[in-house]
Amino acid sequence: MATHEVQGHLDGMLLAILGDGPLHGYGVSIELRRRSGGEFDLAEGTIYPALHRLEASGLLTSRWDVVGGRRRRVYALSSSGRRAVVDRRATWASFSRAVDAVFGGEALEAG
């Protein structure tokens, strides 16, 4: 899949991954690849600016952690981040339903 198509949804996907529990950047990149079945093979460096942006906007919090002698910055959802995940899931569900309908040649009931 084209990188720019993934980039447009990256923030929401990072929030969704962190919705299952705190992770460091490397763990997030592995989880992104795993959940997408290898389809979203982004340059791993691009997730860090996104994580920093989400933290700056108050949706994530972060702290240093040491595991096996290695320092890791671990990210977790803030309370507004948890609300954002719920909102984005709902928005995505209705958007993808509409796109599916358009590609499938069916009309959704207006509502």
């Binding site: 340059a43 460096g45 600016p49």
Partner: peptide, 20 residues
Amino acid sequence: ARFGAAAETARQFNQIARAR
């Protein structure tokens, strides 16, 4: 190689810093 070009990563961080 998987991480991507340093210039692109720096550019994205710089964009965030500018916005901030």
